[in-house]
């Protein structure tokens, strides 16, 4: 019955919100290694005339450290291997890996090192850091939302926009937007 399902959902929501809020510090504190199996790093680039194209990075590694008592001192390190980019269209993948975009042969890693983490809500934080790609480094901001903590596993949903032109990857503008929309799920395993 609909009413009952709604009732259950509301009850679950009431439980979930304080649960995540309560989780936030003491329980979540610790070091996590990002596990590729439960994580994904996807991106979308808008196209002139509507629509866009989506892609994902298949290989990456990183760590998340949540400071006990002071979220602000938490840290996120993420390394992406651009060689592993996939869009479902082989010719586009080859183009992205080539010197037209990532130049993966000469720049095998894209790195993000957080410089500050600011709590913005019960389960959300703004992560600022330095992004390095193709030898260029710029400050970038991402929004992280705590998705859950179970056993020794923590899950974040991370979103943010990056201007690709700054990293020498402006090829194809304005046919393809300069803004790359990131949507990541990062699953960390304690230890």
């Amino acid at each position: 019955m609909n009413a009952r399902i709604l009732g259950l959902a509301a009850f679950a929501a009431c439980l979930a919100v304080p649960a995540i809020a309560a989780v936030a510090l003491s329980d979540a504190a610790g070091s996590y290694t990002i596990s590729p199996s439960g994580s994904s790093i996807r991106f979308t680039i808008g196209k002139a005339g509507g629509g866009g194209f989506d892609g994902a990075f298949g290989r990456f590694k990183g760590t998340i450290r949540i400071d006990n008592g002071d979220v602000g001192r938490s840290k996120v390190d993420l390394t992406i291997y651009p060689e592993s980019v996939g869009t479902g269209q082989g010719r586009i993948d080859a183009f992205l890996r080539s010197d037209a975009v990532f130049d993966a042969a000469n720049n095998p890693e894209i790195q993000f090192r957080s410089t500050s983490v600011t709590r913005t809500g019960d389960a959300t934080a703004l992560v600022t850091g330095r992004l390095t790609a193709r030898g260029k480094t710029f400050p970038e901001k991402f929004t992280a939302e705590l998705g859950g903590l179970k056993g020794g596993t923590i899950r974040f949903h991370v979103t943010g926009k990056v201007l690709r032109s700054r990293y020498g990857m402006d090829v194809g503008t304005p046919l393809y937007s300069n803004i790359v929309d990131f949507d990541m799920t990062l699953m960390g395993k304690r230890g």
């Binding site: 196209k47 002139a48 005339g49 629509g51 194209f53 269209q89 010719r91 586009i92 304005p174 046919l175």
Partner: peptide, 16 residues
């Protein structure tokens, strides 16, 4: 083309 690359003559407008 399955590459679906848009066309914008001289970056002026999107040609359908």
């Amino acid at each position: 083309s399955t590459l679906e690359i848009p066309t914008m003559p001289f970056d002026l407008f999107v040609m359908p």
